[in-house]
């Protein structure tokens, strides 16, 4: 797995603001990790506090399906 590979990318919509830092979220390099596997992705995150936002459709869609595959590996 190379660091350049990105498995999934979510654009940071302009209307998403970090409530703590008061600044808009930005598309950020992030990692999903599960059962000793990791997947580089791009997700909206606060550039200051680093809070990564996982939208509901991603959590219940792609993330859930990858979880299930790994659980039975």
């Amino acid at each position: 797995m190379t660091d350049n590979k990105v498995y999934y990318s979510v654009e940071a919509e302009e209307n998403l603001i970090c409530s703590k830092c008061g600044i808009p979220l930005e598309k950020t390099e992030a990692v999903f990790e599960y059962l000793d596997n990791s997947f580089p992705v791009e997700l909206p995150a606060c550039p200051k506090c680093g809070f990564v936002y996982v939208p509901e459709d991603l959590a219940l869609g792609k993330v859930l399906s990858v979880e299930k595959v790994l659980e039975d590996k």
Partner: peptide, 15 residues
């Protein structure tokens, strides 16, 4: 207004 969950851990690549 809504709730969901996932088991994967997520972090920025700098953490």
């Amino acid at each position: 207004k809504g709730a969901y969950s996932h088991r994967m851990k997520v972090r920025t690549r700098y953490d």
